[in-house]
């Protein structure tokens, strides 16, 4: 018993010392710290986070610290919860569909970064939100396992019940929100009915993209809601070509990922510098092969081979950012109602 007590006291002491020592602000006080709130998959060892941190720190004489509370919407909500007392300088990973809510929150500061030269499939002229990548939502599957692949949304909706899919929660995750708006965009009034039809095929609704994709890779579902660009990862990193995105003839809903500077930031100049870096050549070269999304400012010639070969949807779908807030509310209620049956 004495030994156990001693061991516990020792670990407690060590743990406390370690926690004190690992508080970076206490020791790196001479350099300013830029706190970036980002979604969880951004800051993983295989995500763009580490390389971008390293690249930016070389130019800024500062320390970049990521905070990743969850998927993108959850991250945004964390910031809303913290309000003006938040330590965040930059929020990274807002989605074009959330712009209206972001405006309403009054948490973000306009900047002077030129975005008109960016290569986007839509016109972008916000002075607050800077796009850093974009993509099309799609269901990804393993072609070794799934033999009859739906070629349209309609086919997916009418597919046999044993075709299991895993999707993300539209309230916490931007891909989840994307799917919600995709259905609404295609079906309008019928969205409720479509969700009821999809419901038996949904294995589970995850909080974020990482969990959903992980479950898919482990074989818990046949298809996962992700991006048309996701197969590029398996080609580049694993040399596997069996993972494919199902292309739907009706078109695919789009996502533009955004970053913005917070009003409460104490390091606004540094934050602006970070956003510029994010759409600069160095970061844009990192993004395709780490975040697996289309870059916004990278000459086609510099695109990785896997990206050039990716199938592109015939039609891109996107709601107007001004209208999306109201559509989202209605669609969300429909979704909750249909899926809770």
């Amino acid at each position: 018993m004495k030994a156990l007590t001693l061991a516990l006291l020792a670990t407690t002491g060590m743990a406390i010392v370690a926690s004190l020592a690992s508080t970076p602000s206490a020791f790196a006080a001479d350099k300013p710290t830029l706190t970036v709130y980002a979604y969880d998959s951004f800051n993983t060892e295989w995500g763009p986070g580490p390389a971008i941190k390293e690249g930016f720190e070389k130019t800024c004489d500062c320390v970049v610290e990521y905070v990743a509370p969850g998927d993108a919407t959850e991250t945004f909500n964390r910031l809303r919860l913290e309000g003006s007392s938040s330590k965040a300088d930059v929020l990274l990973g807002l989605d074009s569909n959330l712009v209206a809510d972001a405006d309403k929150s009054g948490l973000f500061e306009p900047n002077s970064i030129a975005v008109d030269g960016l290569k986007l499939p839509v016109v972008w002229n916000s002075s607050t939100y800077v796009p850093f990548d974009w993509g099309y939502f799609a269901f990804v599957y393993d072609s070794d396992k799934v033999k009859t692949v739906p070629t349209s949304f309609e086919e997916l909706v009418n597919a046999p019940d044993d075709l299991k899919i895993v999707i993300e929660d539209p309230r916490s995750s931007t891909p989840g929100l994307g799917l919600l708006l995709w259905v609404k965009n295609l079906y309008g009034e019928r969205a409720d009915e479509i969700w009821q039809k999809l419901s038996p095929r949904i294995v589970t609704v995850t909080k974020g993209w990482s969990e959903a994709y992980g479950m898919f890779l482990e074989g818990q579902a046949d298809m996962v809601l992700s991006y048309t660009t996701s197969p590029a990862y398996h080609i580049e990193a694993e040399n596997k070509t069996n993972y494919k995105a199902a292309l739907f003839s009706e078109g695919h809903y789009m996502q533009v990922e955004l970053a913005a500077v917070t009003k409460s930031s104490q390091n606004k100049a540094l934050a602006n510098q970070f956003l510029s870096y994010l759409i600069g050549p160095e970061a844009q070269k990192i993004i395709p092969t780490t975040n697996w999304m289309y870059p916004v400012a990278l000459p086609d010639a510099d695109w990785p081979a896997s990206f050039k070969d990716l199938a592109r949807p015939g039609k891109a779908l996107l709601f107007d950012t001004g209208k999306v807030s109201n559509i989202r509310k209605v669609a969300l209620d429909e979704w909750l109602g249909a899926l809770s049956k």
Partner: peptide
Amino acid sequence: GGGPKATTIELAIYQAIRYDF
């Protein structure tokens, strides 16, 4: 709990704060 199909009140409180704000 798999999404809205399997949500209790307690979880709905959590989601209202964390997801919907």
